[in-house]
Amino acid sequence: MSWHDFAKLRRRRTYGAVAVTALFASPLLLLFTGSLREPGLPPVIAPPLIPDDAGFTAYHQAVSHGDLVRAAANSMIVAAVGVPLSLLVASLAGFALAQLPRRLTNTVIGLSVLAMTVPAAALLLPRFVLFRTLQLTDTLVPLIAPALIATSPLYPLIYYLAFRSIPADSYDLCRLADLTPMQTWRRMALPQVQPVTAALAALTFVLTWSNLLDPMVYLYDRATFTLPLALRALAAMDPHNQPVFLAGAVLATLPTLLVLGVAQRRFMHSYGPEGAP
């Protein structure tokens, strides 16, 4: 292949990449431009994509009508407690699975896979009964509780694979230094799988932050509403006032984009060619 052909191929790849970017970024861009329109106007046929009267009025209305500040605070409490807890559970379990005898490990992995096949909706009812018996409905506890299963049973398995890919010598080294499993986890293993932690932190955050099903079942008191639930109420209040609920959707989306951006940078971080897990 000549240099000329090579350059041509590269250029074609760039065109493709630009097209993909335009396609996948467009829903978010439309979400944003839609939220800039003046709320409360009668529907027009084919409004311009970038409105003439662009402004942030819809945001003011969304925040005040939807009580989004309180909802955002609730969501943040859930995320601030739930996400670290979830990562802790996942990495501890993944580490233990990588060290325990094969039979036990395989059993737990089998149960985890089974748990992944159970539809979330099928668990709602018994969980609802459980939390109601414990008088925990209308609190944020049921929303944090999934951290106990690491948000998704997939995540301990990912940690398990990551910990297993650390050379056996490193574990032997820690045993010779008389480290307890807990110390080995914290000092040797966890620092080496940092990119995995970054990726799972982002995924866990997105799942926790977006969770709609659980709040719909457990929360009735407006004071405890999380952002998705408050947004749903807002959209139900005036389904035709699109700029307002689009503004709410933008506000709900911003934190996830932020976390994803930060995590992506950490995700790329590794310890050179040898240290990459």
Binding site: T14, V20, G248, A252, T253
Partner: peptide, 29 residues
């Protein structure tokens, strides 16, 4: 290639939108 990194990130974007916000977005789209 040039712009490939951006495109990779762009593919991830819609998945990062909270489900409900994503639903509301499409309700309008």
């Amino acid at each position: 290639a040039r712009a490939v990194g951006t495109a990779r990130a762009a593919v991830l974007l819609p998945g990062a939108v909270p489900e409900l916000a994503y639903g509301l977005l499409w309700l309008w789209l």
